[in-house]
Amino acid sequence: MKLNIAVCIKSVPDPEWYEKITIDIKTKTITRKGIPSIINPVDKNALEAALQLKEQFGGKVTVVCMAPPGATNELYEAMAMGADEAALLSDLAFAGADTLATSYTLAQGLNKLGKFDLVLTGTESADGATAQVPAQLAEWLKIPHLWNVKEFTFATEQELHAKVKMDDAVGEYVIQLPALLAVSREINKPRYTTAMGVMKARKKTLTILNKNDIDVNKSLIGQVGSPTWSGDISIPSLARKGQELIGTPEEIATQLIAKLRAAGINPAKRREGDGK
């Protein structure tokens, strides 16, 4: 069994830098100048899962990303980590896409690139975090999907057995191939990219596809193809006027207990109450 696997990754501003994000009051746009882009962290887990499958069963791993041209860096990095090939879907006409238009574009890109047994993604992106692209991509590809997968194995050559993170629970599912799995960060620990990997990456194939290269319906891409649009944006102020407790640790603890009391928290009363 050889697997043809696609991994969809997103290029996102480094979450370590989110404190530096500001809003341009005049244009109502988000300023992220000077903030470096990285591969969306959980997408590396998706890539790791793909690489492990390739090591186990053989096959090919293709990384796909829809982004402006600068994202070739992230694609080379993915190939340095071990992916065999990469494709960047890049066109001004793709800009301003919401999750539905993005997933449509990705789906058309994937259809152009070949027939994949398995499409892997991360559960969500660090920036927008809508978590909607995986499900919608699967819909456009007309394949089944599972979201928030923390573990999966092959039940048969055509069927996967997956554990899915639910709320305070774990669901178990079987899913038929071809399928899309959106994996969570628990699924593995992404490998480090090695010096050898970095050097090999530039010798691998990176294809850049624009709107004419992939067969797209122009009314379904970019801002035009997006049912949703963004209105006002703001940076909420959450500041509280705090009071500082000072003194020796004993004094601080005593003051804090008094504060808790004042807020109506009293362990003694609570215990009586529990006895009812």
Binding site: N73, Y76, E77, A80, Y192, T193, T194, A195, G197, V198, M199, A201, R202
Partner: peptide, 18 residues
């Protein structure tokens, strides 16, 4: 070169973590 820049990035990630 671009490779050298990426090398620095991936080695830095490793060093920062390990």
């Amino acid at each position: 070169t671009e490779e050298q820049e990426m090398l620095r990035k991936v080695i830095r990630e490793f060093v920062e973590a390990e």
